[in-house]
Design a binder for these strands. Structure first.
Length: 211
DNA sequence: TGACCGATGAAT
DNA sequence: TTCATCGGTCAT
């Protein structure tokens, strides 16, 4: 995939485990209600394949009002509220009904950095989007964007990109899913280890399995 | 209707 | 390592 354009629907119809590493290097864009154009390069993702994966919201075919959009066709935005104070941004993947998604965990700020600093109330670039809750706060992404179509929306979209030749893709176990039994240790988290914008919580230590 | 529990982050 | 904080989920 080459950089620059918006990937077609078929890109998002891939299953979560295939899509998650491919989202690394892509850029997430958000144009806020105030017209501020914010964007960041994706450097950390996690795949939530659904089905038997206990860490997925759609585990065992569970279907509720909250996870409904996770069952929509790939390319939709799935946002949810967690821990009583944080919003997480996911890219729905796979065919309609699959119930798969990729959680975007960290970005490298690219556009509108001053706005992100204001939104986050911090100055350090490495603290702006280095976590799923942080990047939503920095980009101003809220629950009202749940269900947004990333292929057609003029508010939120993904720009194609690649992992640079000088960068090495690495996968690790997912963060914060220790309750998911054996699924907790599967290497469904993908990072660009050279990035200084990874989520600090377990930044990049407990792994080394190259793709 | 209510108790419990997070796909977290920030402070200590 | 602790805790703030509250919607979703599931058991009554």
């Amino acid at each position: 995939m080459s950089s620059g354009g918006r990937p077609g629907l078929e890109f998002f119809l891939q299953d979560a485990l295939t899509l998650a590493p491919k989202l690394l290097g892509c850029t997430l864009h958000h144009v806020t209600q105030e017209g501020e154009h914010l964007a960041g390069r994706i450097v950390e993702t996690e795949a939530y394949p659904g089905g038997e994966d206990r860490a997925s919201h759609t585990f065992g075919g569970r279907r509720t009002k909250r996870n409904e959009v996770m069952y929509s066709a790939g390319g939709h935005a799935y946002l949810y509220f967690v821990y009583g104070m944080h919003t997480c941004f996911n890219v729905v993947s796979g065919e309609e009904g699959d119930g798969e998604a990729v959680l975007v965990r960290a970005l490298e700020p690219v556009l509108g950095i001053h706005v992100m600093e204001r939104n986050r109330k911090v100055e350090e670039a490495t603290k702006l989007c280095s976590g799923p809750g942080k990047l939503c706060q920095a980009l101003g992404l809220a629950l009202d964007s749940n269900g947004e179509n990333l292929c057609e929306s003029s508010r939120i979209w993904i720009e194609a990109g690649d992992v640079a030749d000088t960068e090495t893709l690495v996968c690790t176990p997912r963060i914060g899913v220790g309750y998911a039994a054996e699924w907790a240790v599967f290497p469904y988290r993908y990072v660009i280890p050279e990035s200084s914008h990874l989520s600090t919580r377990n930044g990049l230590k407990a792994e080394k399995s190259r793709l």
